[in-house]
């Protein structure tokens, strides 16, 4: 009798039934300390037992940008438009691209990389991809510092950057960064959910991300691509990353035109990817340990 009366005040139920979106925000909030500790772990363990330590955060983007400038601008003569220094142009594109791609690859192996952890203890699984995105945000912040330093350097000591001026739309920069994160996170969660059962996707992501970079207007302006290869330009144009990178350069360096339509398009795609990612991720997290 007693149990019947009490049946209403069960705290929670473990059952096979699942809702389409079963995000328990209260629970995620309760685990916020774990999120921060994961971020801390990711940041501090990356360069432990290295001599240069956190300096690597600066060295990496510098050398990649230098190489890109040498190959694509000095050797292949790709114009940057508006007479912006090629180094700044590449640094801007690469910073964005690296942010997106590390969010994507970092979250895409969530289930596989954390199999041991997920198999032993429960916490909201979405914490792990979130921690990857926040960790990358920290890295992105460091890259932005590098970017700003060089920006100031080019402004003060050279004539070449006279055209480079931030536009008023720079106030939308946080939104842009947020949308890029959503896109990378959503895409990554979709991939990680499918790789638990079908490993094929791991290989696809490996070279797919590299190929995607060439289709994301990282080392060339979209206008130049349209001019040279008009029949393929739709491929690059419909890629939301192209929009994000173009917009980022527009906001910070004043290249090209600001197009609200493309901004809305890329934003919508990101949000849709994120929502699909959440749904798929949620469906997977309950049973993946049996299929992984």
């Amino acid at each position: 009798m007693n149990t019947k009366n009490n049946s209403s005040d069960w705290l929670y139920t473990i059952s096979p039934k699942r809702k389409l979106i079963d995000l328990n925000f209260k629970e995620i909030w309760r685990y916020r300390d774990l999120l921060l500790l994961f971020v801390k772990r990711n940041v501090i363990t990356l360069y432990k037992q290295t001599i240069l330590g956190p300096l690597w955060y600066f060295i990496q983007p510098l050398f990649t940008t230098l190489t890109f400038t040498l190959i694509f601008n000095n050797l292949a003569n790709i114009p940057t438009g508006n007479g912006i220094p090629a180094f700044l142009f590449n640094l801007a594109g690469l910073s964005c691209w690296n942010y997106f791609s590390s969010c994507l690859t970092g979250t895409s192996n969530t289930f596989k990389a954390n199999q041991g952890l997920f198999g032993k203890v429960y916490f909201p699984r979405v914490i792990v991809p979130l921690s990857v995105v926040i960790t990358n945000l920290v890295n992105f912040g460091i890259r932005m510092l590098v970017f700003i330093s060089f920006y100031v350097y080019f402004k003060l000591f050279t004539e070449s950057a006279s055209q480079a001026l931030p536009t008023a739309s720079v106030v939308l920069l946080p939104v842009l960064i947020f949308l890029m994160a959503l896109f990378g996170l959503g895409f990554g969660m979709i991939i990680s959910s499918f790789t638990t059962k079908y490993r094929d996707l791991t290989y696809l992501v490996g070279f797919g991300v590299q190929l995607l970079m060439y289709g994301s207007a990282v080392m060339y302006p979209l206008s130049y691509f349209k001019e040279k290869l008009p029949e393929y330009s739709w491929l690059v144009e419909y890629n939301p990353m192209t929009t994000f990178i173009e917009l980022f350069r527009h906001m910070t360096l004043g290249t090209e035109q600001f197009s609200l339509a493309s901004f809305l398009y890329a934003g919508t795609v990101s949000i849709v990817f994120f929502l699909i990612g959440l749904i798929v991720f949620n469906r997977t997290e309950k049973s993946f340990i049996d299929t992984v």
Partner: peptide, 27 residues
């Protein structure tokens, strides 16, 4: 019980938070 995997059928109802220790030193 520790919500690592879900049952195929049936359900478990609890009135308290469950913490599980299936392994020491996880993570």
């Amino acid at each position: 019980l520790s919500k690592v995997t879900s049952p195929t059928t049936g359900e478990i109802k609890t009135k308290g938070r469950i913490a599980s220790l299936l392994e020491v030193g996880t993570g």
